[in-house]
Design a protein around this nucleic acid. Sequence first.
DNA 1: GTCCATACTTAGCATCCCAGTG
DNA 2: CACTGGGATGCTAAGTATGGAC
Length: 730
Amino acid sequence: MSGDQIDCGSRFNDSLKHKEKYKEKEHKHKDHKKDKEREKAKHGNRDKEKEKMKSKDGSADKYKDKHKEKKTKPLDVKVKKENGFASPPPAVKSEPEDTFFHSPKLEKSLKRERDDDNDSDFKAKKVKLENDKKVKKRKPEEEPKKTKNKRAVTDGKKKVKKEPEEKWKWWEEERYTDGSKWKFLEHKGPVFAAPYEPLPSHVKFSYDGKHMKLRPEAEEVATFFAKMLDHEYTTKDIFRKNFLKDWRKEMSAEEKTKLTDLNKCDFVPMSEYFKAQSEARKAMSKDGKLKIKEENERLLQLYGFCIMDNHRERIANFRIEPPGLFRGRGDHPKMGMLKRRIRPKDIIVNCSKDSKHPEPPPGTKWKEVRHDNKVTWLVSWTENIQGSIKYIMLNPSSRIKGEKDWQKYETARQLKKCVDRIRTQYREDWKSKEMRIRQRAVALYFIDKLALRAGNEKEEGETADTVGCCSLRVEHIKLYPENDGQEFVVEFDFLGKDSIRYYNKVPVEKRVFKNLQLFMENKETDDDLFDRLNTSVLNKHLQELMDGLTAKVFRTYNASITLQQQLKQLTSAEENLLAKILSYNRANRAVAILCNHQRAPPKTFEKSMQNLQAKIDAKRDQLVDAKRELKSSKADAKVRRDEKSKKSVETRKKAVERTEEQLMKLEVQATDREENKQIALGTSKLNYLDPRISVAWCKKWTIPVEKIYNKTQREKFAWAIDMAEEDFEF
DNA sequence: GTCCATACTTAGCATCCCAGTG
DNA sequence: CACTGGGATGCTAAGTATGGAC
C-alpha cells in the first residue's frame, strides 16, 4: 500500500505540451453557488433510489490488493540506458505491509523530550490548544530577560556575535502551550521601496508620435509598463485594459483627455533606457558592486533580524513589496492592474509592549501598533489587488516556523498510524445511503490516492479559474469504462494551484467509478462534481477521524512515506556515492510527480544538455585513449619487466580509473538532468518531505548531508539534522 | 450552513551570484 | 582572468485552514 501513490498514471510527459492549448480552452462556468443549490434541489429525492441500485455492485476487493501491480510510468520512460547508472526507476513493487505500517518505537530517537509529550508532538499541540488557560513557561532562565526590554535587547545584540558558533537548539526546549507565539518581540519595522525617481529629460515618452511629458505620478506607472515591454503578457487584452484603466487614475485631467489609446503610446525609449541601466549595473566596477553589497548587508543587519523571546532571529521578507503591475499566474482577470505603493500609514506593526517600537520614517505615522502575541507576524498591510493581507514574518530557520514545521510532520506520522482505518472507512462510505457521504468518501479517496489539494472555493472573477479536489467540476474528469485494456479509468484534466495543469489517467475501483457516474448524472459540464461537499465539511469530518487531521495532511503523509519507501527500494549498498545521490533524487522525483510539482523546462535546457553530451563524448574518447595507452604499457611491461615500466602501468591504470569515474559522473549528471527536465524537486523537498527521513538516509549510507541539503535548507532543517538518527522511521 | 476575515503554508519563476572552466 | 551555467536566493502569488458573526 505504501507505494500506491506512485502509480498515478501517465501524467507527465504530455502534460506540459498541452499547456498552451489548454489555456485556450474556455472556462465559461459561472455562478457556482447557484449551481450547487440547483443541484441539490434537482437531485434531492433521487439519491435514495440510486443508493438501492448501487449497493449491489460492490465487491470486497481489498484496497491492498488493488495496488500491487503499480509502477511509475513517467520515470520508466526517461531512464537512460546507456550509462552505467540505469538503476531501475522507482518502480513500486508492493512490500509486505508490515515493513511500513507498524513502526517500532519510532519516537525514541528524538533527543529532546519535551516534558509534555513522550508520545508524539502531535499531542503536544493538542495540549496547547485545549489548555488555553494553563500557561506553561518556557525555560526558566529566559523569563527574567523577556520582561525587561532593555536587557533583552542587549542580550540579543551580544548574541549577534555569539550565535554563529553556538546555534540555539530551540527543539530542545519546551513549547508554549497557552496559544501564545512569543512573550517578547522587538524589531525595526519594514524597509520601504525606494521612492520614485523621475526619468532624465532625454528619455522621451510619446503619444501618437508626439513627445509628451508626463507628471511623475503617471510617469511612474508608465515605467512599470515599459519595464515589462518584452513580456508576452503586455500584449494581452486583459492586461492592457486593466493597465490603462489604472494608469488613467494616476493622470491629471489633461493627461487623461489626451491619453485614451494604449496602442498610440510609445514606451520604447523608456524600455531602452531601463535596459541600458541594467547593463550599466552589470558592467559596474568591482568597487561599486562591493559598495552595494555592503549597503545590502547593512540593511540586512539592521532590519533583517528581530528579537523574539531573547533570541535574534532572521526575518524572511523585511522589504515591503514595491509598486508595479500585477501579474497573476495563469489566466488572471486582474493582470495588469496597478499594485499600489505601500506607505507607512498602510502599515500595522506588531511587537511587544515593552519593546522598543519601530519608528516610522520621519514625518509619517504607522496605521497602528499592536501587541498581539497570538500571531507570528511583525508587520502587515492590505494589498490593493485582491484586498488580502500581506505579512512580514520570520525565516524558516526561526523557532516559530521550525516548531510548526516539525509539528506538521508529527501530525503526518500520526496519520500513518491510523491511515488503514481511515481507508477502510471511506471505502465503506462509498456505499453509504447518503449522497454527501459518498461524495465525501470519493473525494477523500482522490486526495489520498492522488495527493490532490483540498480545493477551497474561490471568488469568481477575482482569480484565475483553478480547482482542487472539492471544487472539481464535471468538465474536469472523463470516465472510461474501459481504456487501454484497463477497466474503470478516470481521466483528470484541470488547472490546479498556480494554473499548473493536472493531467492523469487512473484506473479506479468499480465502486468509485459508479459513484462518479452518479455524481455526474444530469449535470452540466460546469457544475460541481461534488455538489454536496466543500473543504470545511471535509475537514470537519477528518477532524473527527483524527486530531489535527486535514486534507493537506494526506499530501504530507503520502509524500513522506513515498520518499521513505522509495529510498529503501532504490538505494543499493554496492553503488557509489554519486549513484546513491542519483537514487535519492529519483526518490525525490517520485514524490514531485505524485504531487504534480512541475516547472517549465529551463530556457537553456536543450543547449546545456548538448554541452553536457559533448563533454561526455569527449570523455569517452579520452577513456578509449587512456585504455589503449594502458594496454601498450602493459605489453611493454611484460617485455621489459623493469620497475619503470611497471610504474608506468600503474600510472596509466590510475588514469583510466580516473577517467572512468569522471565519465560516470557526467553520465549520472546527464541522466539526472534529463529526468528533471520538467519536474521541480524543490517544493517537495522544502514542504512535504520529513527532513528526518533524508537525514537518516544520509547517516545510514554515510553521505554528507550537504549533498542533499544546501546551506539554506540545512538552516531550515537544523532540528532534523540534529535529532534524526540512522534508524529514524517516518 | 454561509460568508468573511485572518493567518499561515506552499508554489513557480526571475534574478543573483559564484564556482568551475577554458 | 573573463565567462557562464546553474544552483541559491528572493519575491510574491496562490493556496489551505480556522473561527466568528449571522
